[in-house]
Every structure is written in C-alpha cells, then in structure tokens.
Amino acid sequence: MSKQSKDSLTNVPKNEIWINNLEYFNHSNFENMDINEVASLILDTYKTYNGRQFLNEDDLNFLLPSDKLEIERSTLSHVLLRHRWNGNFCSPIKERLNTSGTTMLDVGCGPGLWAIDMGLNHPSSSIIAIDIDPSKFPPNDQCPPNVCFLTCNAVHGIPFPPNTFDFVNISLMWSAFSEAQWILLIKDLIRVLKYDGWIEFTEPDPALRNGGKNLTWLLESFANACRDVGGVNIRIYEKIPTYIRAMDELEDLNCMSVNYPVGEWYGCFGKYSLDNLERLLKAAVYLPKYIGISNEQFNNLLKDYLKEANETKSFIYIYKYFAKKVSKKAPII
C-alpha cells in the first residue's frame, strides 16, 4: 500500500465525533412519553425509548440498549462465540499469557465474560477490561483477583501509557463506532500495545447466507438504519484488515473466519444463535419506525421471518483479524 493511500486512511481529525442522542426518533415521540421517560432523558445517565434503556452520551454511536436484556444477549453472544472458535483468542500468544507479569486489555468488555474467562485460564496474567457503562460490570466477588474493570469511553482515548499491554482484545464492537472513530481507536490501541504484542479483532459479517428474501431484507434495513440513525457501518469487518495494513506499526496480519449457523436446523447451537439474532433485532427499537411499521407489526413480521432461517439453513460468517506490533529497532548509523 502506498504512503498516500495509508495517509488517506489514518489521518483522521481527532475531534471528529458523531452527535447521536437517537435524535432520529426522540423528538417526534416526545409527546407520547410518560413522566419517567421524560425525566430519564433530561436528568439521568440513561434515556428510555420503547421500554429499553440507552446510555445518554452525546458522542456515543452505540445503537444497542444498555440494560439487563442486553447484558443477557451479550452473555449469550460470548458463549456462542467461544464455542464456535473453540476458545477466546487465536493470536499466537498463549505461552506468554502463562508468564508472570503479562498484561491484557479487553475493549468494550460489557458484562466481562471474556475477561473473567481469561483471568481464570491465565492466572499469571493481569487483565484490565474497559467499558463506557459500569452498570454492566460483574460484582467484585465474582471476578478473579487478576481482573480489573475500568469505566472508559474509548472514543476519548485509552488512559494508559505507551507500550503497556502484551495483548489487546476487541470483540463485537460493530455497532459502537463510526469509521473515523475506528481508525483513531486502532491507532490508540497500537500506542498502548507493547512491541511484539498482539492485537485481535472479532467481528461478524451480518449478511445472511442462504437467507430467505424477507429476513435478508430485514437485516439490510437494520444495516441501513444503523448507518442513517447513528453513522455506524455494521459491516466494519470489511474495513478492519485495510486499517491494519495501513498502520506501519503492525505486521503479520492473520485473517480467519468460521461459519455461524442460524436456526434449529443446526441443533442446539443453531437454536441459541437464532435466539440471539431475534434478541438483537428486537433491541434495535428504532427499526420499526425506520421501516415505517408499528412495534406490533414488526414483532409479527420478525416471528415469521425467523422461520425462514430454519427453512433455508441460514448462516453468517464471523471474522478474526490479529496482528503483531513491530519490534522497536535501533536506528542504523
């Protein structure tokens, strides 16, 4: 890749943010809100729409709720992902993780299942897990002693010095950042990554393979709504390898994928992955208005559409990308 091409990808203004606030639907629905919803919008850290709770952050693109139902869904996602990949990571760093003093960073940790798993499996390492919403963090008595949770909005920067972590993990953050924010975030994660350390991304391709026309249309509408409402490209999996290749500090890029069956046609795993998809689409509470139907109509359509996944034996792909930070070399004199 030419230097000019790399510069076009990596030179993003640091002050570029998206002012989201779910303005797309908040104003037009304001007169229908009850007093608790209005108070939530004005006074609280959270705002409520269609019975779901969202973080009330001006520069936040994240278009999924921040409530108990979403914690349950993200927990299910972690379990399914770990099973499908037969583990929590693919980077060639297992030996180092079992060495005393090794440090890991988990970005957008949610309820912290990945960090807890890694803490239990690698007790010699220390794991710091960050997320913008501390209400998702597990109680201290449910965490290994080598795992720490920290409230952090990654859009504002990662609050650690350069060369801090041996391993950085970022998983299923497809709905969280604009493309410009992804570039800035990756640059900052490289900054805090140690030389010879590894960074790993796990993101889905939301396009349904063998999908019926109705469910495929609904998922396309979901992707368009994420783009139009919050400026988020949920197909970010396509961009990440390009971003990595544009970063001179990274080398040894590896790209891997697994298929992810959706529907009871694939047994227990497929049943739970279909349940996860249904929970995800129901969490997109802005979607019914975006496609111009009522919530009741949407739920009825969703129930019918999900049947297609079993009939057509649908699946998606999940991608992993991992790369190593280039060793610091002594200057040639």
Rank of each mutant, 00 (worst) to 15 (best):
D58Q: 09
L172P: 02
E249W: 05
L306D: 03
S74M: 00
I293G: 04
C152E: 03
E57M: 06
Y49R: 14
Y195M: 03
E200L: 05
S171V: 09
N233W: 01
A223R: 13
V107C: 08
L172T: 11
V38E: 00
Y305L: 09
E251K: 15
C255A: 04
H78R: 13
N50P: 00
F222P: 00
F322R: 02
I240R: 11
S124H: 08
A39R: 15
F298H: 09
Y286C: 00
V232Y: 08
G110V: 01
H156Y: 09
E95F: 10
P65N: 13
G267D: 01
K187D: 01
T151M: 12
E296Y: 04
N276G: 00
E296D: 14
W85Q: 08
L172D: 05
T75M: 06
E264V: 09
I42T: 11
F25E: 12
M118A: 11
P145F: 09
L81Q: 05
N20Y: 06
C268F: 12
A223S: 13
D117W: 13
L281P: 07
S66I: 05
H122L: 03
W265M: 05
K194Y: 04
Y237Q: 07
P13D: 09
L97S: 07
M1H: 11
N214I: 13
N98E: 13
P288Q: 07
M118V: 08
E200C: 04
G211T: 11
P139G: 01
V262R: 03
G51Q: 10
L219N: 09
N163Y: 07
V155I: 13
S327T: 03
E278Y: 01
I199P: 02
Y305C: 06
E249V: 00
N56R: 12
K6C: 10
S327Y: 03
D248R: 10
F160S: 04
F160Q: 00
N88S: 12
N11Y: 10
N21T: 14
P111A: 04
I42C: 10
A330E: 12
L218V: 14
L274S: 06
S273N: 09
C148T: 14
W217L: 08
Q142R: 11
S2W: 15
F315H: 14
V258M: 08
D252F: 04
D131L: 02
L41Q: 14
V155E: 03
L301P: 00
Y24D: 09
N121F: 02
L281K: 07
C143P: 12
F160K: 01
P92T: 03
I127K: 05
A283P: 00
S40V: 04
S171C: 02
I183V: 11
L219P: 00
D188L: 01
R96P: 01
A223M: 08
L120S: 04
L301R: 14
I332D: 05
D196P: 04
F322N: 04
F201C: 02
S273M: 03
H83A: 00
A223N: 07
Y195L: 05
G292D: 11
V258T: 13
F269E: 08
N295C: 01
D59S: 07
D275T: 09
D275H: 08
L64K: 11
L281N: 08
E23W: 15
N169K: 10
W114H: 03
R235Q: 14
I333V: 13
T151Y: 05
A115T: 11
E200I: 12
I316L: 08
I332R: 15
P139N: 03
C90Y: 07
Q4M: 13
